[in-house]
Simulated scan of single mutants.
Amino acid sequence: MAGRALERLIRFCTFVGALAIAVMMLATCWDIVARWAANRPLHGVVELVEIMVLASAMLGLPETFLRDEQIRVDLVDSFLSQRALALLKIVALVLSVVLLAIIAVNVYQPMVDAYRFGDLKYDLGVPLYPLYGLIIFAFAASILSCAAALVRELGTGEQ
């Protein structure tokens, strides 16, 4: 099982991701009602929804990896032995860690550039560099989740 600190971190990510979904729903509903009732739509709702989708998607990844709840199509399960499937799962976790690390490293420079050049969302004026930082944070938490799942898989062989 993952360490207590990791579980708290992942639970925090999930909570903030769920909060982002709630903000997205409320903003969309408010925009629709305000547009219908008073012809006064909520300014910047599209950008707000974009930011909340980013937050909910990225912050949902760590728990998905830790709980082994990724969407997958089991094409080879009936052809391979249990041992081969366990090995395939280990390889997939290692490749997931590598891919997440590559993406996180490659998001760093755009984050620095967005900070240096003062890039902002057009309507809301929200700086872009914290959004890149959110991606890096979420991928780092996902890497820790994958590593914990890999340790669990290597240690116990559970699925």
Rank of each mutant, 00 (worst) to 15 (best):
S56L: 12
Y108E: 07
L42Q: 05
R8V: 08
V45Q: 09
K89M: 03
V98N: 12
T28E: 14
F65R: 00
D119S: 08
L128G: 02
R116P: 05
K89E: 12
V76L: 15
L85G: 15
A92W: 03
L99E: 07
F117T: 11
R8Y: 13
E50R: 02
R4I: 00
A148W: 05
M52P: 06
R11H: 14
V91K: 03
V33Y: 14
L59T: 05
L154Q: 11
M24H: 06
P110F: 02
V105E: 14
L48Y: 08
T156R: 09
E69G: 06
L42P: 04
Q70L: 11
L99I: 09
V45G: 03
V16H: 07
A22T: 09
Y132E: 06
A27Y: 14
C146Q: 02
E63A: 13
G133E: 08
L128P: 05
E153K: 11
A101I: 01
P41L: 08
S142E: 10
I90Y: 03
M25S: 10
D123W: 05
A37Q: 15
A38W: 07
P130W: 00
T14P: 05
M52K: 01
I51W: 01
R11I: 14
I136D: 13
I71H: 02
I21T: 14
L48K: 03
P41I: 01
A84F: 07
V73Q: 11
A27D: 12
I10C: 05
A149Q: 09
P130T: 00
R67I: 01
G17K: 01
V91T: 15
Q70V: 15
E158M: 09
T28H: 04
T28N: 13
S56I: 13
Y132N: 01
C13P: 09
R152P: 10
A34S: 10
A38I: 03
Y108K: 02
M58F: 02
E69C: 01
V126N: 00
H43R: 14
C13K: 04
Q70F: 00
A104V: 05
Q159T: 11
E50K: 01
R67E: 12
F65D: 07
A38S: 07
D123T: 11
G157P: 12
A149F: 08
T14L: 08
F65Q: 04
L154D: 13
L93E: 15
M52H: 01
T156G: 10
L85V: 01
F15P: 14
L150P: 06
V49Y: 01
D119W: 00
T14A: 12
A92P: 07
R8I: 10
L59H: 02
L128I: 13
C29I: 15
V107E: 15
A140G: 04
L128C: 08
A149P: 06
A18N: 07
C146W: 02
F79K: 09
I90H: 08
F117R: 03
L66T: 08
V151A: 10
Q109C: 04
L100Q: 05
M25E: 11
A92E: 07
L59N: 05
F15L: 15
A20I: 11
V16K: 08
L61H: 06
F137V: 00
L95M: 13
A101V: 00
G118Y: 13
L59C: 07
M58P: 09
A84S: 14
E7P: 04
